[in-house]
Design a protein around this nucleic acid. Structure first.
Lengths: 154, 154
DNA sequence: CTTTTAGTTCTACATTTGCAGAACCAAAAG
DNA sequence: CTTTTGGTTCTGCAAATGTAGAACTAAAAG
């Protein structure tokens, strides 16, 4: 089903996703992204990744829970067919950037609590804050630009 | 030494940093960022954070290893005085963005391995790639802009 | 040479995490 | 009603992490 290279890539992407989810879920998501097969049922996933039923079940449900995958069904077939939700990846990029900005908010709090606002640390915190605000404006407008661009094409 | 609010903030920032380092190291870094005290020796850190010697030692050395803190010494004093390296935080923001772009490279690999480049998934991968390239250009020029801006001020 | 200082390294342990395999369950098929 | 299907939930359990506390060490002080 997957070429050897695709298998390796599933592992690589899986390792990447491990920073925000358990290994099994990470591999499942990677599989759905990399494969040429457009959807996978429970046992397809199990078979491709050599996972136990519990790991498969928990992984799938975790991914459904964070909206990174979805499923559809066929009439007269109790199986669920799982697919990657590509939009979730845009969301992923977005939340990663928001995490970065989240630290910045904490650093600003640190600055506000400083007794001496002119100390070197305080000045550095202020500079970082500046940079991050600039970055925030730029990145949020990137989303706007990209979305309107998309709409024009469609 | 730290106000109650600062203590709480050390914990908050500590939790943030836990995503990339052990709890003790995360708290040490947060302490050095938040405190008004401009530098901390080994036992200052220990005392402020209620850490064991081993946790303190390992934490400090981990942070030195990834260049997030530095130390200086005083003549006739064997102690090392540790300080946060604010530049490392710019580096942190930068590497976080690079991580995001790192996923994009993997997604591009996935696209290249697709047999059917016109499938929905493949098209979505291509779109994501586009967006990320755009984001990359914008964010890298942000650093440039910010740096030249900094130089003009100084 | 002995003691103190400033810190490192070692040992043990408690906690957490994630998975396998088995038992389980509800709905549909026979 | 019994069996099959498509999962879910419930034990363990193994590996990884991170920390405390104690033992240790190297350099300097006495």
């Amino acid at each position: 089903m997957l070429s050897e290279k695709q298998k390796q890539l599933v592992e690589k992407i899986g390792i990447y996703f491990e920073h925000s989810m358990p290994p099994a879920a990470a591999r499942i998501l990677a599989l759905l992204i990399v494969s040429d097969q457009d959807s996978f049922c429970f046992d397809d996933i199990r078979a491709n990744l050599n996972l136990s039923k519990s790991a498969t079940s928990n992984g799938i449900n975790a991914l459904l829970g964070v909206n990174k995958i979805e499923y559809y069904t066929k009439t007269g077939d109790r199986k669920r067919y799982f697919k990657w939700k590509p939009n979730s990846t845009i969301g992923h990029f977005k939340t990663e950037i928001e995490k970065i900005l989240g630290l910045n908010i904490l650093l600003e709090d640190a600055l506000h609590l400083k007794k001496d606002k002119d100390s070197h640390n305080a000045q550095m915190l202020a500079e970082l804050s500046d940079l991050m605000h600039y970055l925030y404006q730029e990145t949020s407008s990137i989303y706007e630009l990209w979305r309107t661009n998309k709409q024009q094409i469609q």
